[in-house]
Design a protein around this nucleic acid. Structure first.
Length: 477
RNA sequence: GGCCCCUUCGACUAAUGGUUAGGUCACCACCCUUUCACGGUGGCUGAACGGGUUCGAAUCCCGUAGGGGUCACCA
Protein backbone atom coordinates (compact mmCIF):
# COMPACT_ATOMS: atom_id res chain seq x y z
CA UNK A 1 0.00 0.00 0.00
CA UNK A 2 1.43 3.32 -1.09
CA UNK A 3 1.50 5.94 1.64
CA UNK A 4 2.85 9.41 0.90
CA UNK A 5 2.85 12.63 2.84
CA UNK A 6 2.96 16.31 2.05
CA UNK A 7 4.79 17.90 4.97
CA UNK A 8 4.87 21.69 4.79
CA UNK A 9 5.97 24.00 7.55
CA UNK A 10 3.45 26.71 8.28
CA UNK A 11 5.52 29.81 7.64
CA UNK A 12 2.97 31.88 5.76
CA UNK A 13 1.96 31.51 2.16
CA UNK A 14 2.05 28.39 0.00
CA UNK A 15 4.88 28.45 -2.52
CA UNK A 16 4.05 27.14 -6.01
CA UNK A 17 6.90 24.70 -5.58
CA UNK A 18 5.09 23.34 -2.54
CA UNK A 19 1.92 23.22 -4.55
CA UNK A 20 3.60 21.03 -7.12
CA UNK A 21 5.07 18.75 -4.46
CA UNK A 22 1.62 18.45 -2.90
CA UNK A 23 0.14 17.78 -6.33
CA UNK A 24 2.61 15.04 -7.18
CA UNK A 25 2.00 13.39 -3.80
CA UNK A 26 -1.72 13.53 -4.46
CA UNK A 27 -1.38 12.25 -8.03
CA UNK A 28 0.96 9.47 -7.00
CA UNK A 29 -1.26 8.34 -4.12
CA UNK A 30 -4.43 8.43 -6.19
CA UNK A 31 -2.82 6.69 -9.13
CA UNK A 32 -1.80 3.81 -6.91
CA UNK A 33 -4.95 3.78 -4.82
CA UNK A 34 -2.77 4.75 -1.87
CA UNK A 35 -3.06 7.14 1.03
CA UNK A 36 -2.23 10.84 0.89
CA UNK A 37 -1.26 12.33 4.24
CA UNK A 38 -0.90 15.91 5.38
CA UNK A 39 1.57 16.54 8.16
CA UNK A 40 2.35 19.93 9.63
CA UNK A 41 6.03 20.43 10.38
CA UNK A 42 5.95 23.23 12.89
CA UNK A 43 9.04 22.48 14.94
CA UNK A 44 10.59 25.88 14.42
CA UNK A 45 8.82 28.07 16.92
CA UNK A 46 10.68 31.16 15.75
CA UNK A 47 9.19 30.93 12.28
CA UNK A 48 5.65 30.14 13.26
CA UNK A 49 3.13 32.39 11.56
CA UNK A 50 -0.36 32.87 12.95
CA UNK A 51 -3.02 31.56 10.59
CA UNK A 52 -0.57 29.82 8.30
CA UNK A 53 -2.10 26.40 8.81
CA UNK A 54 -5.59 27.69 8.08
CA UNK A 55 -4.26 29.40 4.97
CA UNK A 56 -2.57 26.19 3.87
CA UNK A 57 -5.77 24.20 4.32
CA UNK A 58 -7.78 26.77 2.41
CA UNK A 59 -5.25 26.84 -0.40
CA UNK A 60 -5.19 23.06 -0.74
CA UNK A 61 -8.95 23.03 -0.86
CA UNK A 62 -8.95 25.72 -3.52
CA UNK A 63 -6.48 23.68 -5.54
CA UNK A 64 -8.58 20.55 -5.15
CA UNK A 65 -5.89 18.56 -3.39
CA UNK A 66 -7.38 16.27 -0.75
CA UNK A 67 -5.88 14.25 2.07
CA UNK A 68 -6.90 10.95 3.60
CA UNK A 69 -5.11 11.54 6.88
CA UNK A 70 -4.12 14.80 8.50
CA UNK A 71 -4.79 17.29 11.27
CA UNK A 72 -8.39 17.88 10.20
CA UNK A 73 -9.26 14.45 8.85
CA UNK A 74 -7.48 12.57 11.62
CA UNK A 75 -6.26 9.02 11.10
CA UNK A 76 -4.57 6.09 12.79
CA UNK A 77 -1.09 7.65 12.94
CA UNK A 78 -1.89 10.97 14.56
CA UNK A 79 -1.40 13.50 15.78
CA UNK A 80 -0.40 14.97 12.42
CA UNK A 81 1.12 18.13 13.82
CA UNK A 82 4.73 17.80 14.92
CA UNK A 83 4.49 20.20 17.83
CA UNK A 84 2.06 17.71 19.36
CA UNK A 85 4.54 14.85 19.03
CA UNK A 86 7.58 16.28 20.81
CA UNK A 87 7.63 13.51 23.43
CA UNK A 88 8.09 10.92 20.70
CA UNK A 89 11.08 12.76 19.29
CA UNK A 90 12.74 13.16 22.68
CA UNK A 91 12.33 9.46 23.37
CA UNK A 92 13.96 8.66 20.08
CA UNK A 93 16.80 11.06 20.63
CA UNK A 94 17.43 9.18 23.88
CA UNK A 95 17.34 5.86 22.08
CA UNK A 96 20.02 7.14 19.73
CA UNK A 97 22.17 8.39 22.59
CA UNK A 98 21.83 5.06 24.36
CA UNK A 99 22.86 3.15 21.26
CA UNK A 100 25.79 5.47 20.63
CA UNK A 101 24.39 6.94 17.42
CA UNK A 102 23.96 10.37 18.93
CA UNK A 103 25.53 12.45 21.66
CA UNK A 104 24.75 15.54 23.73
CA UNK A 105 26.57 18.69 22.70
CA UNK A 106 27.04 21.68 24.99
CA UNK A 107 28.68 24.07 22.57
CA UNK A 108 27.20 27.55 22.60
CA UNK A 109 25.93 29.33 19.54
CA UNK A 110 28.81 31.78 19.94
CA UNK A 111 31.44 29.06 19.87
CA UNK A 112 29.85 27.38 16.89
CA UNK A 113 29.83 30.70 15.15
CA UNK A 114 33.48 31.42 15.70
CA UNK A 115 34.47 27.90 14.69
CA UNK A 116 32.51 28.33 11.50
CA UNK A 117 34.10 31.69 10.78
CA UNK A 118 37.57 30.30 11.32
CA UNK A 119 36.85 27.40 8.99
CA UNK A 120 35.55 29.69 6.32
CA UNK A 121 38.57 31.94 6.67
CA UNK A 122 40.80 28.89 6.32
CA UNK A 123 38.89 27.86 3.22
CA UNK A 124 37.72 24.56 4.61
CA UNK A 125 34.12 23.36 4.57
CA UNK A 126 32.24 24.66 7.63
CA UNK A 127 31.29 21.76 9.85
CA UNK A 128 30.92 21.11 13.54
CA UNK A 129 34.39 20.37 14.93
CA UNK A 130 32.99 17.55 17.09
CA UNK A 131 34.30 18.94 20.34
CA UNK A 132 31.58 17.22 22.39
CA UNK A 133 31.58 13.99 20.42
CA UNK A 134 33.87 12.16 22.80
CA UNK A 135 32.72 13.49 26.15
CA UNK A 136 32.46 10.69 28.71
CA UNK A 137 29.00 9.59 29.71
CA UNK A 138 29.74 10.72 33.26
CA UNK A 139 30.65 14.20 32.19
CA UNK A 140 27.70 14.72 29.88
CA UNK A 141 25.31 13.25 32.44
CA UNK A 142 26.69 15.62 35.05
CA UNK A 143 26.39 18.65 32.81
CA UNK A 144 22.86 17.71 31.78
CA UNK A 145 21.93 17.21 35.43
CA UNK A 146 23.32 20.61 36.28
CA UNK A 147 20.91 22.08 33.77
CA UNK A 148 23.45 23.14 31.17
CA UNK A 149 21.75 23.84 27.83
CA UNK A 150 22.57 21.29 25.16
CA UNK A 151 21.53 19.82 21.87
CA UNK A 152 21.67 16.25 20.62
CA UNK A 153 23.82 15.54 17.59
CA UNK A 154 24.00 12.63 15.18
CA UNK A 155 27.26 10.67 15.51
CA UNK A 156 28.11 10.32 11.83
CA UNK A 157 30.23 7.22 11.24
CA UNK A 158 33.74 7.76 9.98
CA UNK A 159 35.01 6.43 6.69
CA UNK A 160 31.74 5.13 5.33
CA UNK A 161 30.07 5.47 1.99
CA UNK A 162 26.40 6.33 2.39
CA UNK A 163 24.40 5.08 -0.56
CA UNK A 164 20.78 5.31 -1.49
CA UNK A 165 18.60 5.07 -4.54
CA UNK A 166 16.47 7.89 -5.84
CA UNK A 167 13.58 6.94 -8.12
CA UNK A 168 14.25 9.93 -10.32
CA UNK A 169 18.02 10.15 -10.18
CA UNK A 170 19.22 6.61 -9.64
CA UNK A 171 22.00 5.60 -7.24
CA UNK A 172 23.68 8.36 -5.28
CA UNK A 173 26.51 8.08 -2.79
CA UNK A 174 28.14 10.39 -0.28
CA UNK A 175 31.37 10.00 1.63
CA UNK A 176 30.50 10.21 5.32
CA UNK A 177 33.40 12.59 5.92
CA UNK A 178 31.40 15.28 4.10
CA UNK A 179 28.43 14.81 6.42
CA UNK A 180 28.09 17.05 9.44
CA UNK A 181 27.16 15.84 12.93
CA UNK A 182 23.67 17.18 12.46
CA UNK A 183 21.71 18.60 15.36
CA UNK A 184 18.71 16.33 15.96
CA UNK A 185 17.24 17.86 19.07
CA UNK A 186 17.51 21.58 19.72
CA UNK A 187 18.22 23.10 23.11
CA UNK A 188 14.57 24.11 23.41
CA UNK A 189 13.67 20.42 23.32
CA UNK A 190 12.16 20.59 19.86
CA UNK A 191 13.50 18.29 17.16
CA UNK A 192 15.03 19.52 13.94
CA UNK A 193 13.50 18.57 10.64
CA UNK A 194 15.88 15.66 10.25
CA UNK A 195 14.87 13.80 13.39
CA UNK A 196 11.17 14.62 13.33
CA UNK A 197 10.87 13.76 9.68
CA UNK A 198 12.44 10.33 10.00
CA UNK A 199 10.56 9.40 13.14
CA UNK A 200 7.25 10.50 11.66
CA UNK A 201 7.80 8.91 8.28
CA UNK A 202 8.56 5.68 10.05
CA UNK A 203 5.58 5.69 12.40
CA UNK A 204 3.25 6.97 9.71
CA UNK A 205 4.46 4.11 7.53
CA UNK A 206 5.41 6.32 4.64
CA UNK A 207 6.47 4.26 1.63
CA UNK A 208 7.58 7.04 -0.71
CA UNK A 209 9.13 10.37 0.12
CA UNK A 210 8.42 12.93 -2.59
CA UNK A 211 10.15 16.22 -1.95
CA UNK A 212 12.10 18.92 -3.77
CA UNK A 213 15.67 18.48 -4.92
CA UNK A 214 16.95 20.89 -2.29
CA UNK A 215 16.63 17.96 0.14
CA UNK A 216 18.91 15.71 -1.81
CA UNK A 217 22.05 16.71 0.03
CA UNK A 218 20.57 16.05 3.45
CA UNK A 219 19.24 12.64 2.47
CA UNK A 220 22.41 10.79 3.56
CA UNK A 221 21.78 12.05 7.09
CA UNK A 222 18.31 10.60 6.90
CA UNK A 223 19.62 7.31 5.56
CA UNK A 224 22.04 7.20 8.48
CA UNK A 225 19.18 7.82 10.89
CA UNK A 226 17.08 5.00 9.48
CA UNK A 227 20.06 2.70 9.86
CA UNK A 228 20.69 3.88 13.42
CA UNK A 229 17.12 3.06 14.37
CA UNK A 230 17.23 -0.19 12.45
CA UNK A 231 14.34 0.94 10.28
CA UNK A 232 13.67 0.28 6.64
CA UNK A 233 13.95 3.61 4.78
CA UNK A 234 11.20 4.65 2.37
CA UNK A 235 11.84 5.12 -1.32
CA UNK A 236 12.99 8.61 -2.23
CA UNK A 237 12.03 10.76 -5.19
CA UNK A 238 13.64 14.17 -5.34
CA UNK A 239 11.67 16.46 -7.59
CA UNK A 240 13.36 18.97 -9.87
CA UNK A 241 13.22 22.55 -8.69
CA UNK A 242 10.93 25.21 -10.11
CA UNK A 243 13.07 28.09 -11.29
CA UNK A 244 13.08 31.83 -11.83
CA UNK A 245 13.66 33.00 -15.40
CA UNK A 246 17.37 33.30 -14.49
CA UNK A 247 17.38 29.62 -13.49
CA UNK A 248 17.81 30.18 -9.76
CA UNK A 249 15.38 28.63 -7.30
CA UNK A 250 11.98 30.29 -7.68
CA UNK A 251 11.87 33.14 -5.22
CA UNK A 252 9.59 35.89 -4.08
CA UNK A 253 12.10 38.52 -5.12
CA UNK A 254 11.54 37.81 -8.78
CA UNK A 255 7.75 37.83 -8.90
CA UNK A 256 4.77 35.89 -7.68
CA UNK A 257 5.50 32.64 -5.92
CA UNK A 258 2.53 32.24 -3.62
CA UNK A 259 -0.41 30.19 -4.76
CA UNK A 260 -2.55 32.86 -3.14
CA UNK A 261 -1.02 35.46 -5.46
CA UNK A 262 -2.18 33.51 -8.49
CA UNK A 263 -5.60 32.96 -7.04
CA UNK A 264 -5.92 36.67 -6.31
CA UNK A 265 -4.77 37.60 -9.78
CA UNK A 266 -7.57 35.64 -11.33
CA UNK A 267 -6.05 32.29 -12.20
CA UNK A 268 -8.33 29.29 -12.07
CA UNK A 269 -7.23 26.38 -9.86
CA UNK A 270 -7.59 23.85 -12.68
CA UNK A 271 -5.34 25.96 -14.87
CA UNK A 272 -2.65 26.42 -12.23
CA UNK A 273 -2.75 22.72 -11.39
CA UNK A 274 -2.54 21.70 -15.03
CA UNK A 275 0.34 24.07 -15.61
CA UNK A 276 2.31 23.14 -12.54
CA UNK A 277 1.78 19.41 -13.19
CA UNK A 278 3.60 19.81 -16.48
CA UNK A 279 6.58 21.51 -14.88
CA UNK A 280 8.94 18.60 -14.56
CA UNK A 281 6.69 15.87 -15.81
CA UNK A 282 4.52 15.06 -18.75
CA UNK A 283 2.62 12.05 -19.96
CA UNK A 284 4.31 12.04 -23.35
CA UNK A 285 1.17 13.15 -25.10
CA UNK A 286 0.88 15.90 -27.66
CA UNK A 287 -1.99 17.51 -25.78
CA UNK A 288 -1.35 20.01 -23.02
CA UNK A 289 -4.72 20.28 -21.33
CA UNK A 290 -5.48 17.56 -18.82
CA UNK A 291 -8.26 17.08 -16.34
CA UNK A 292 -7.25 16.05 -12.85
CA UNK A 293 -8.52 12.53 -13.55
CA UNK A 294 -6.31 12.29 -16.60
CA UNK A 295 -3.35 13.49 -14.57
CA UNK A 296 -4.05 10.83 -11.95
CA UNK A 297 -4.42 8.15 -14.60
CA UNK A 298 -1.14 9.00 -16.33
CA UNK A 299 1.08 10.11 -13.49
CA UNK A 300 4.33 8.20 -13.26
CA UNK A 301 7.32 9.10 -11.09
CA UNK A 302 9.61 7.38 -13.56
CA UNK A 303 8.71 10.05 -16.09
CA UNK A 304 9.58 12.99 -13.86
CA UNK A 305 12.47 15.03 -15.25
CA UNK A 306 15.78 15.58 -13.55
CA UNK A 307 16.42 19.17 -14.58
CA UNK A 308 14.72 22.17 -13.02
CA UNK A 309 11.98 23.97 -14.92
CA UNK A 310 11.47 27.70 -15.33
CA UNK A 311 8.04 28.90 -14.26
CA UNK A 312 7.00 30.53 -17.54
CA UNK A 313 4.12 32.92 -17.11
CA UNK A 314 3.20 33.14 -20.81
CA UNK A 315 2.13 29.54 -21.00
CA UNK A 316 0.26 29.81 -17.71
CA UNK A 317 -1.63 32.79 -19.12
CA UNK A 318 -2.51 30.86 -22.23
CA UNK A 319 -3.62 27.88 -20.20
CA UNK A 320 -5.75 30.03 -17.92
CA UNK A 321 -7.45 31.54 -20.96
CA UNK A 322 -8.14 28.03 -22.22
CA UNK A 323 -9.78 27.09 -18.95
CA UNK A 324 -11.83 30.28 -18.85
CA UNK A 325 -13.14 29.56 -22.34
CA UNK A 326 -14.11 26.04 -21.32
CA UNK A 327 -16.22 27.24 -18.41
CA UNK A 328 -19.88 28.16 -18.79
CA UNK A 329 -20.83 31.80 -18.15
CA UNK A 330 -22.85 30.58 -15.18
CA UNK A 331 -19.74 29.03 -13.61
CA UNK A 332 -17.83 32.22 -14.20
CA UNK A 333 -20.49 34.49 -12.72
CA UNK A 334 -19.68 33.97 -9.03
CA UNK A 335 -16.01 34.49 -9.81
CA UNK A 336 -16.54 37.71 -11.75
CA UNK A 337 -19.22 39.26 -9.56
CA UNK A 338 -16.92 40.13 -6.63
CA UNK A 339 -14.48 41.74 -9.02
CA UNK A 340 -17.23 43.93 -10.47
CA UNK A 341 -18.31 44.85 -6.96
CA UNK A 342 -14.75 45.77 -6.00
CA UNK A 343 -14.86 48.32 -8.79
CA UNK A 344 -18.28 49.55 -7.70
CA UNK A 345 -19.89 48.38 -10.89
CA UNK A 346 -23.60 47.84 -10.45
CA UNK A 347 -25.04 45.06 -12.55
CA UNK A 348 -27.67 42.37 -12.39
CA UNK A 349 -26.69 38.72 -12.77
CA UNK A 350 -28.31 38.75 -16.18
CA UNK A 351 -26.32 41.75 -17.30
CA UNK A 352 -23.06 40.32 -15.95
CA UNK A 353 -23.75 37.06 -17.74
CA UNK A 354 -24.12 38.99 -20.98
CA UNK A 355 -20.81 40.74 -20.42
CA UNK A 356 -19.14 37.44 -19.57
CA UNK A 357 -20.41 35.87 -22.76
CA UNK A 358 -19.16 38.84 -24.77
CA UNK A 359 -15.71 38.79 -23.17
CA UNK A 360 -15.06 35.11 -22.55
CA UNK A 361 -12.90 34.59 -25.62
CA UNK A 362 -10.88 37.71 -25.04
CA UNK A 363 -9.62 37.42 -21.46
CA UNK A 364 -6.69 35.64 -19.91
CA UNK A 365 -7.47 36.17 -16.24
CA UNK A 366 -10.63 36.84 -14.26
CA UNK A 367 -10.07 40.58 -13.63
CA UNK A 368 -9.82 41.07 -17.39
CA UNK A 369 -13.57 40.50 -17.51
CA UNK A 370 -14.18 43.80 -15.78
CA UNK A 371 -11.03 45.73 -16.64
CA UNK A 372 -11.09 45.12 -20.38
CA UNK A 373 -14.82 45.68 -20.40
CA UNK A 374 -15.26 48.66 -18.10
CA UNK A 375 -17.40 50.40 -20.75
CA UNK A 376 -20.17 47.93 -20.09
CA UNK A 377 -20.48 49.47 -16.65
CA UNK A 378 -19.25 53.05 -16.88
CA UNK A 379 -18.73 55.54 -19.71
CA UNK A 380 -15.22 55.85 -21.11
CA UNK A 381 -13.06 58.32 -19.26
CA UNK A 382 -10.37 58.33 -21.89
CA UNK A 383 -9.99 57.44 -25.51
CA UNK A 384 -7.21 55.18 -26.71
CA UNK A 385 -4.88 57.49 -28.58
CA UNK A 386 -3.75 55.09 -31.27
CA UNK A 387 -7.25 54.04 -32.15
CA UNK A 388 -8.50 57.60 -32.05
CA UNK A 389 -5.86 59.03 -34.34
CA UNK A 390 -6.69 56.38 -36.87
CA UNK A 391 -10.45 56.64 -36.93
CA UNK A 392 -11.47 59.99 -35.51
CA UNK A 393 -11.40 62.90 -37.94
CA UNK A 394 -13.70 65.67 -39.19
CA UNK A 395 -15.19 63.38 -41.77
CA UNK A 396 -15.98 60.73 -39.21
CA UNK A 397 -17.53 63.31 -36.90
CA UNK A 398 -19.69 64.62 -39.69
CA UNK A 399 -20.98 61.16 -40.55
CA UNK A 400 -21.59 60.29 -36.93
CA UNK A 401 -23.57 63.49 -36.53
CA UNK A 402 -25.52 62.57 -39.60
CA UNK A 403 -26.34 59.00 -38.57
CA UNK A 404 -27.25 59.92 -34.99
CA UNK A 405 -30.90 60.76 -35.79
CA UNK A 406 -31.35 57.32 -37.29
CA UNK A 407 -30.19 55.77 -34.03
CA UNK A 408 -32.52 58.02 -32.10
CA UNK A 409 -35.38 57.01 -34.32
CA UNK A 410 -34.64 53.31 -34.00
CA UNK A 411 -37.59 51.34 -32.69
CA UNK A 412 -35.62 48.22 -31.99
CA UNK A 413 -32.19 48.27 -30.41
CA UNK A 414 -30.84 44.83 -31.12
CA UNK A 415 -27.85 43.51 -33.02
CA UNK A 416 -29.57 43.05 -36.38
CA UNK A 417 -31.45 46.35 -36.37
CA UNK A 418 -28.30 48.27 -35.47
CA UNK A 419 -26.31 46.54 -38.14
CA UNK A 420 -29.01 47.38 -40.68
CA UNK A 421 -28.91 51.05 -39.72
CA UNK A 422 -25.16 51.32 -40.08
CA UNK A 423 -24.82 49.25 -43.23
CA UNK A 424 -27.67 50.99 -44.98
CA UNK A 425 -26.16 54.38 -44.20
CA UNK A 426 -22.70 53.30 -45.35
CA UNK A 427 -24.13 51.93 -48.56
CA UNK A 428 -25.99 55.17 -49.25
CA UNK A 429 -22.78 57.10 -48.80
CA UNK A 430 -20.79 54.61 -50.80
CA UNK A 431 -18.32 53.99 -48.00
CA UNK A 432 -17.24 50.83 -46.21
CA UNK A 433 -19.09 49.96 -43.02
CA UNK A 434 -15.77 50.11 -41.18
CA UNK A 435 -15.69 53.86 -41.71
CA UNK A 436 -18.74 54.08 -39.49
CA UNK A 437 -18.06 51.21 -37.12
CA UNK A 438 -14.72 52.43 -35.80
CA UNK A 439 -15.73 55.99 -34.87
CA UNK A 440 -18.85 54.67 -33.16
CA UNK A 441 -16.82 52.10 -31.21
CA UNK A 442 -14.39 54.80 -30.18
CA UNK A 443 -17.17 57.13 -29.07
CA UNK A 444 -18.99 54.48 -27.04
CA UNK A 445 -16.13 52.45 -25.59
CA UNK A 446 -12.99 54.54 -25.96
CA UNK A 447 -11.03 51.47 -27.03
CA UNK A 448 -10.10 49.54 -30.08
CA UNK A 449 -10.56 46.20 -28.46
CA UNK A 450 -13.71 44.32 -27.60
CA UNK A 451 -16.73 42.41 -28.82
CA UNK A 452 -18.53 43.16 -32.08
CA UNK A 453 -19.91 46.71 -32.19
CA UNK A 454 -23.55 45.83 -32.72
CA UNK A 455 -23.53 43.29 -29.94
CA UNK A 456 -21.88 45.83 -27.70
CA UNK A 457 -24.34 48.63 -28.47
CA UNK A 458 -27.24 46.29 -27.85
CA UNK A 459 -25.87 45.44 -24.41
CA UNK A 460 -25.13 49.01 -23.42
CA UNK A 461 -28.57 50.13 -24.51
CA UNK A 462 -30.04 52.86 -26.63
CA UNK A 463 -30.08 55.85 -24.31
CA UNK A 464 -26.58 55.35 -22.96
CA UNK A 465 -25.06 54.58 -26.36
CA UNK A 466 -26.53 57.72 -27.90
CA UNK A 467 -25.50 59.80 -24.91
CA UNK A 468 -21.89 58.64 -25.26
CA UNK A 469 -21.88 59.41 -28.97
CA UNK A 470 -23.02 62.95 -28.23
CA UNK A 471 -20.43 63.40 -25.53
CA UNK A 472 -17.71 62.30 -27.92
CA UNK A 473 -18.95 64.58 -30.66
CA UNK A 474 -18.89 67.54 -28.31
CA UNK A 475 -15.65 66.90 -26.45
CA UNK A 476 -13.45 64.87 -28.76
CA UNK A 477 -11.26 66.77 -31.15
C1' G B 1 35.30 26.77 -1.83
C1' G B 2 33.76 21.18 -0.36
C1' C B 3 29.95 17.81 -1.59
C1' C B 4 25.78 16.51 -4.65
C1' C B 5 22.51 17.14 -8.87
C1' C B 6 21.61 18.76 -13.79
C1' U B 7 22.37 20.13 -19.42
C1' U B 8 17.18 18.90 -26.53
C1' C B 9 14.24 25.37 -29.94
C1' G B 10 13.64 31.93 -26.03
C1' A B 11 10.18 28.77 -22.33
C1' C B 12 7.69 23.80 -21.06
C1' U B 13 8.87 19.29 -23.20
C1' A B 14 8.72 14.28 -26.77
C1' A B 15 11.93 10.43 -28.34
C1' U B 16 14.27 4.79 -24.05
C1' G B 17 20.78 3.34 -30.62
C1' G B 18 18.28 3.99 -36.88
C1' U B 19 12.82 10.11 -37.04
C1' U B 20 13.69 15.38 -42.58
C1' A B 21 14.83 15.71 -33.95
C1' G B 22 8.00 15.90 -32.84
C1' G B 23 4.28 18.88 -29.83
C1' U B 24 2.68 23.23 -26.83
C1' C B 25 3.57 28.53 -25.33
C1' A B 26 5.79 32.90 -27.20
C1' C B 27 7.10 35.27 -31.83
C1' C B 28 6.32 36.26 -37.38
C1' A B 29 3.28 35.90 -41.90
C1' C B 30 -1.22 34.81 -44.21
C1' C B 31 -6.60 33.48 -43.99
C1' C B 32 -11.26 34.66 -41.40
C1' U B 33 -12.91 39.64 -39.84
C1' U B 34 -15.90 46.15 -38.05
C1' U B 35 -11.49 46.27 -33.64
C1' C B 36 -9.41 42.85 -30.12
C1' A B 37 -9.68 37.96 -29.50
C1' C B 38 -11.10 32.93 -31.04
C1' G B 39 -10.32 29.62 -35.05
C1' G B 40 -7.42 27.95 -39.45
C1' U B 41 -2.78 27.59 -42.47
C1' G B 42 2.30 28.20 -42.77
C1' G B 43 7.02 29.80 -40.78
C1' C B 44 11.26 30.90 -37.35
C1' U B 45 14.53 28.95 -33.98
C1' G B 46 17.37 23.53 -30.66
C1' A B 47 21.11 18.47 -29.31
C1' A B 48 26.92 23.03 -24.29
C1' C B 49 31.92 21.39 -26.01
C1' G B 50 35.67 17.48 -26.89
C1' G B 51 36.83 12.55 -27.10
C1' G B 52 35.44 7.51 -27.35
C1' U B 53 31.99 2.72 -28.03
C1' U B 54 29.00 1.30 -32.43
C1' C B 55 27.56 -0.24 -39.20
C1' G B 56 24.78 3.77 -36.89
C1' A B 57 24.63 8.19 -30.94
C1' A B 58 20.23 13.49 -28.73
C1' U B 59 20.15 8.55 -26.74
C1' C B 60 25.76 4.50 -23.92
C1' C B 61 30.94 5.72 -21.60
C1' C B 62 34.88 9.35 -20.23
C1' G B 63 36.52 14.20 -19.82
C1' U B 64 35.72 19.62 -20.04
C1' A B 65 32.61 23.72 -19.60
C1' G B 66 28.28 25.94 -17.82
C1' G B 67 24.05 26.11 -14.54
C1' G B 68 21.75 24.83 -9.98
C1' G B 69 21.21 22.94 -4.97
C1' U B 70 23.36 22.40 -0.25
C1' C B 71 26.79 23.23 3.55
C1' A B 72 21.92 26.59 10.63
C1' C B 73 19.89 24.74 17.40
C1' C B 74 15.18 26.79 9.12
C1' A B 75 12.37 23.64 6.92
Amino acid sequence: MVRVRFAPSPTGYVHVGSLRTALYCYLFARHHGGVNILRIEDTDRTRYVEGAVENLLRTMEWAGITFDEGPITGGPCGPYVQSERTELYREHADILIASGHAYPCFCTAERLDSVRKAQQAAGIPPMYDRLCRNLTKEESDRRIASGEPHVVRLRVPIGELVRFNDIIRGDIEFDSKTIDDQVLLKSDGFPTYHLANIVDDHFMQITHVLRAEEWLSSTPKHVLLYAAFGWEPPKFAHLPLILNPDRSKLSKRQGDVAVEDFRDKGYLPDALINFVALLGWNPSATEEIFTIDELIRDFDLARVNKAGAIFGREKLDWMNAEYIRKKSPKELLPLVRPLAEDRKYVASDEYLLTVIRAMQERVRTLPDFVDFASYFFVPPTEYEEKYKSKHWNPEAKERLTEILPRFEAAEKWDHDSLEAIVRTYAEEKGISAGKMIHPIRLAVTGRGMGPGLFELLAVIGKAESIRRMKVALESLV
